[in-house]
Simulated assay, not measured.
Amino acid sequence: MSSLAWLGWGLAALVLFWGIGAYNRVMSLRNGIASAFAQLDLHLTERARLCAKLLELLRPLLPNEQATFAALENAQAETQTLALAVRAKPYASDPVASLAVANAVHAAALTRLMSLLDHHAELREHIELYELMDELKLVERQRSFARQLFNQAVGLYNQAVTQFPTRILASLYGFGDARSL
């Protein structure tokens, strides 16, 4: 074999090993998105549980505020439905975008409920209510941190997918941009 043939085989092997390494790196980053969403999903589930308990406790205490409760319940149901869709493919842009909107609606409904509770002085004697609210605030802070980790994982993945020469591989294997929350 001539030196030119060896050079050709060497370049082919180099491209092959680069392709395998780049593919594995992008898959590892994509799996990191799934892992980060799993942590976020735990906090979404815990928030749903706490909101349900809070609403159960408040319904008899504030019978005139059923519209506020219904808004929070609807937002919670929508968030849980969309979280289920994101669990399957947390790196897919469309379900994550829908979940981001649902989270914003949920946050607005929860803020309205919290401000409503601040205006009702008669509720201050219910210790269980304030314990639930404190627990919910803690879960919200944890969810916010988990969301930040998810967004960082998405950023690392998107950066890897858009860099040359990995971008060539990404288009061949269908690695698209992920969306942050």
Rank of each mutant, 00 (worst) to 15 (best):
L123D: 08
H126R: 08
A100W: 01
K89F: 10
G8D: 01
A67M: 01
N151C: 01
A88P: 10
F69Q: 05
L132Q: 01
A107S: 13
V96D: 02
F150A: 06
A85R: 15
P165M: 05
A88K: 15
R25N: 06
L84N: 11
G10D: 00
R124Q: 10
E122F: 03
V154N: 03
E56M: 11
D134W: 00
L14Q: 05
R59P: 07
A104L: 06
A85T: 11
G8M: 11
R30D: 08
F37W: 15
L57Y: 13
R87N: 11
A48D: 05
A178M: 05
V96R: 09
A88H: 14
N64F: 10
Q152C: 00
N103T: 04
A109M: 08
T45S: 15
R141W: 02
H43M: 14
L7Y: 07
T111G: 14
S3I: 07
R112T: 13
E135P: 05
A178L: 10
F145K: 03
Q39M: 09
A67K: 04
L4G: 02
D94F: 09
D134A: 14
A97R: 13
A22G: 07
R25Q: 08
R30K: 15
A36M: 07
M27K: 10
A75W: 06
Y173M: 15
L172E: 11
A12R: 00
R143I: 07
A85Y: 05
K89V: 12
A170H: 09
L138E: 12
Y157Q: 14
S28K: 12
S35T: 14
F37G: 02
L55I: 07
A108H: 04
R30I: 03
H126W: 09
D118L: 06
M27L: 13
R124V: 02
N151I: 01
H106E: 06
Y23I: 02
N151D: 10
P60G: 09
T111Q: 08
R49S: 13
A83N: 08
R124S: 04
A67S: 07
L116H: 00
T79G: 01
G8R: 06
F17Y: 13
H120G: 06
P63L: 05
E46L: 14
A48L: 01
Q152P: 00
M27N: 11
I20Q: 02
V161K: 08
S3Y: 05
S93Y: 08
N158M: 12
D94Q: 14
A146H: 07
V26N: 02
S171Y: 07
L116Y: 01
S28C: 01
L149S: 04
R112S: 12
L40A: 08
G21A: 11
R47A: 07
E73V: 06
A71I: 04
E65W: 08
F145H: 09
E78T: 08
A5T: 13
L113P: 00
A109G: 06
L7M: 12
N74G: 07
E128R: 10
S2K: 03
L50H: 11
Y23D: 04
H43Q: 15
S98P: 00
A5V: 14
A92W: 12
A34V: 03
G176R: 15
H126E: 10
A34W: 00
V15M: 06
R112K: 13
